[in-house]
Deep mutational scan, measured.
Amino acid sequence: EQLARLKREFNENRYLTERRRQQLSSELGLNEAQIKIWFQNERA
């Protein structure tokens, strides 16, 4: 579920704002660094 949600977010926007990253962190139970790194890896 977390992965599917991250992929949906990535398809909508390849870059997250700090606020959006905080929201996802709270909703998915991941820390902000994990989300940031995931997005960086997807863009690579």
Rank of each mutant, 00 (worst) to 15 (best):
N11V: 11
I37H: 12
Q40G: 04
A44D: 12
N31Q: 11
Q34I: 15
R5I: 13
W38A: 07
R19T: 13
L16N: 03
N41G: 06
Q22L: 11
Q22A: 12
E9Q: 04
L3M: 08
I37F: 09
T17E: 04
R14K: 13
S25W: 04
F10V: 02
E1H: 08
Q34P: 01
N13Q: 03
R14W: 06
Q34M: 14
E32G: 05
Q2R: 07
E27Y: 04
F10Y: 10
A33D: 15
N41D: 09
E32F: 04
K36M: 15
L28H: 01
I37Q: 13
Q23P: 00
L6H: 01
E32H: 05
Q34F: 15
R19W: 07
L3K: 01
E42S: 04
L16C: 00
T17W: 06
N41P: 02
Q22H: 09
Q34R: 04
E12T: 09
E32I: 09
S26L: 15
L6V: 02
R8C: 13
G29V: 01
R21Y: 11
Q2D: 07
Q23M: 10
R43Y: 12
Q2H: 08
W38F: 10
F10E: 02
Q23T: 10
E27R: 03
F10Q: 02
E18N: 12
Y15D: 05
L30G: 02
R5G: 07
E1S: 10
R5V: 14
E9P: 01
Q22M: 08
E12M: 10
E32C: 06
E32W: 09
F10T: 02
L3S: 06
Y15V: 12
N13T: 04
L28G: 00
F39R: 00
Q40N: 09
E18A: 13
K7V: 07
N11F: 10
L24W: 02
G29E: 06
E42W: 14
E1R: 04
E18L: 11
E27Q: 07
R43C: 11
W38M: 04
R14L: 03
E27L: 08
Q2G: 03
A44Q: 09
G29Q: 04
A33K: 10
A44E: 13
R43Q: 10
R19P: 10
E32R: 04
L30M: 14
N13M: 04
L28C: 05
A44W: 10
Q2K: 09
L30C: 10
N13G: 05
K7C: 13
A44T: 10
L3V: 10
Q2V: 15
N31L: 11
E32K: 06
E1V: 07
K7S: 05
E9T: 01
Q22R: 13
L16Y: 02
I37A: 14
S26A: 14
W38Y: 05
K36V: 15
I35P: 00
E12G: 02
A4D: 12
Q2T: 12
N31A: 14
F39D: 01
A44N: 14
E9A: 13
L3F: 07
Q23E: 14
L28N: 00
R21S: 15
E12P: 00
N11C: 15
L24F: 02
R19I: 11
Y15M: 07
E9R: 05
G29K: 05
S26G: 07
R43L: 14
N31M: 09
K36I: 15
R20I: 10
L24N: 00
F10S: 01
R8G: 04
E32D: 07
N13W: 10
L30E: 01
R21P: 03
K7W: 08
E9M: 04
E9D: 04
R14A: 12
L3A: 05
Q2E: 06
A4K: 10
E1W: 13
R8K: 14
R20K: 11
K7R: 12
Q40L: 09
S26Q: 14
E12A: 09
N13F: 06
Q22W: 06
Q23A: 11
Q22N: 07
L6C: 13
L6K: 03
A44Y: 10
L30P: 00
S26F: 13
I35C: 00
S25C: 00
I37P: 00
S26W: 13
I37K: 12
R19A: 15
K7L: 12
Q40D: 13
E42M: 13
N11I: 11
K7Y: 07
N41H: 09
K36A: 15
N13L: 09
L28F: 03
N41A: 10
A33Y: 13
R20G: 05
L16Q: 03
E12Y: 07
L3T: 07
L6M: 05
N13A: 03
F39N: 01
Y15C: 10
L3Q: 10
L6R: 01
E12F: 08
E27A: 07
Y15R: 05
S26K: 15
E1P: 04
L3I: 13
Q23N: 08
R19K: 14
A4T: 06
A33W: 15
I37V: 10
F39Y: 06
L16G: 02
E12D: 11
R5D: 03
R21N: 08
R5M: 09
I35G: 00
R21F: 12
L6A: 02
N13D: 08
E18G: 09
E27P: 02
E12V: 08
A44F: 08
N41S: 07
Y15W: 12
I35W: 01
A44I: 11
N13E: 03
W38E: 01
Q22K: 15
R20Y: 10
Q34G: 01
R21H: 03
Q40K: 10
N11G: 11
I37L: 12
I35K: 00
F10H: 01
Y15S: 06
E1N: 06
N31I: 06
I35Y: 01
R8D: 10
Q40E: 15
R5Y: 08
N11M: 14
Q22S: 07
F10I: 04
R5E: 05
Q40Y: 06
E12W: 13
I35D: 02
R20H: 08
I37S: 11
N11E: 13
L28Y: 02
R20A: 08
E9F: 06
F39G: 01
R20E: 08
A33F: 12
E18T: 12
R43A: 13
Q22V: 11
R20V: 09
Q34Y: 15
L16P: 14
N41M: 13
N31G: 13
S25V: 08
R5A: 12
E27T: 05
R20D: 07
I37G: 06
Q22G: 04
S26M: 15
Q23Y: 08
W38Q: 01
R43I: 14
A44R: 12
N31W: 05
S26E: 13
L30A: 00
S26N: 12
N31P: 15
L16I: 08
N11P: 00
L24Y: 00
E18S: 13
Q2S: 06
S26C: 06
N41R: 10
L3Y: 10
Q2M: 12
N41W: 08
R5P: 01
Q22P: 00
Q34W: 15
E9N: 01
L6P: 05
K36R: 12
R8P: 02
R8T: 09
R14S: 13
E18H: 13
G29C: 00
R21D: 03
F39A: 00
Y15T: 10
Q40F: 08
E42A: 10
Q23V: 12
E18W: 06
E1G: 06
L28P: 02
A4W: 05
R8I: 13
N31T: 15
E1Q: 11
A4Y: 05
R8N: 09
E42T: 03
L3E: 12
K36D: 15
E32T: 07
Q22D: 05
Q2A: 14
L6G: 02
T17L: 03
L24M: 03
F10L: 03
R5S: 09
K7H: 09
Q2W: 13
E27K: 04
Q40R: 11
L24K: 01
F10W: 05
W38L: 04
R21M: 15
Y15I: 11
G29F: 04
N13Y: 09
G29T: 02
E32P: 11
N31K: 09
R19G: 12
L30F: 04
N31Y: 05
T17G: 07
S25T: 05
L30S: 02
G29P: 00
R43F: 14
R21T: 15
L24R: 00
A33E: 15
K7G: 06
A33R: 09
N11R: 11
A44L: 13
F39W: 15
L3G: 02
Y15K: 06
R21L: 15
E1A: 08
Y15F: 13
E12Q: 13
E18Y: 08
K36S: 15
F39Q: 01
E42R: 04
I35T: 00
R21G: 12
A4H: 06
F39M: 10
G29L: 03
E32L: 09
F39S: 01
N13R: 04
R20L: 10
K36G: 11
N41K: 10
K7A: 06
T17D: 13
R14V: 06
E27V: 07
T17C: 05
T17I: 01
S26D: 12
N13I: 05
R14N: 11
Q2N: 08
A33S: 13
I37R: 11
L24V: 01
K36F: 13
R14D: 04
F39L: 04
E12I: 09
S25P: 00
E42F: 11
R20M: 12
